[in-house]
Design a protein around this nucleic acid. Structure first.
Lengths: 156, 156
DNA sequence: ATCGTTGCAAACACTTTGCAATGTG
DNA sequence: CACATTGCAAAGTGTTTGCAACGAT
């Protein structure tokens, strides 16, 4: 028990240090909302909308929805987060990992479930896409999402 | 002159007939707004937002923006149109051609210019994506867009 | 004549902005 | 202490809904 507790504590301490380092490294002050958001994403690394982030954090931290929007915008600007469109009402955000973590998603048209897809078939094309175009100089990003039906929704 | 005029007239007549057939074939009544929207897309086959469609048609036809939204929604439901996300403020629509016309886009992050990309590297993966997933039964659609800089924006 | 379709006004949902109070470095 | 950051209120923007008038079949 004690061992588990120590391990957990150490992990949390490490995580907290990482989060602070990330913030400082990007010129941010270390504040409650920012720490809470980054921590949330590091423990539950699924795409989330501003509303979802707000609902998760608001009870404990009292953070405002507007602050979530502003924070996500600034994180996106620094490349910490990236926004993705999953054909939902709101924009979703996820941690913008390095190239080795490049991935996409499958979204269920029935229940909205989101699953990660590790394989990216677009990367090779993205690299050469600009050269095939008469008008484009470079391609810096691409979005790729798959839509379908998850097994439980397919059964109706 | 006369020849050109006749050709044009014939073309328009054909186009009108096609549009009406498409509408009737999908159980729609042939009305001004619907005809105008389909005609617009068939002559200018670039993705357009509801606002853009409205701006183009409103002066001549007096069609309402709400009608554009409703029409596009019903067209999408019937598979006549499809909505695409180009990281703009609004949703864009384009004609939903058959599989042989499957394509994607490059969007300029500078000026917003949109270019068609005929090659689709995601199609093979889309076909097998579901089988690679533990939870998904089938993948019915995918979205893939490239973002970058067009040559004139790259020059600043 | 009937029922789908349209236009207008108003409601909505998500996101952004203004500004005074607060907190961090 | 100075300035970035936050919360609250209000405004914006794209899109949807309610409803009565209209129009295609």
């Amino acid at each position: 028990m004690k061992k588990t507790k120590n391990t957990t504590t150490t992990t949390n301490r490490n995580k907290k240090a990482e989060v602070e380092a990330l913030l400082r490294g990007n010129g941010f002050k270390v504040t409650g909302p920012r720490t809470a958001i980054l921590s949330l994403f590091s423990e539950k690394c699924a795409p989330m909308s501003a509303e979802q982030i707000f609902k998760k954090l608001s009870p404990d931290t009292g953070v405002d929805l507007v602050t979530v929007y502003r924070t996500m915008a600034s994180f996106e600007e620094k490349g910490i987060m990236k926004r993705i469109d999953l054909h939902k009402d709101a924009v979703y955000f996820e941690i913008n990992g390095d190239d080795t973590h490049h991935h996409h998603h499958i979204v269920c048209n029935g229940c909205g479930k989101i699953e990660k897809m590790e394989k990216c078939p677009a990367e090779p094309l993205a690299r050469t896409a600009a050269s095939h175009s008469a008008h484009f100089a470079e391609v810096t990003a691409h979005s790729l999402e798959f839509f379908g039906m998850c097994k439980s929704c397919a059964k109706h």
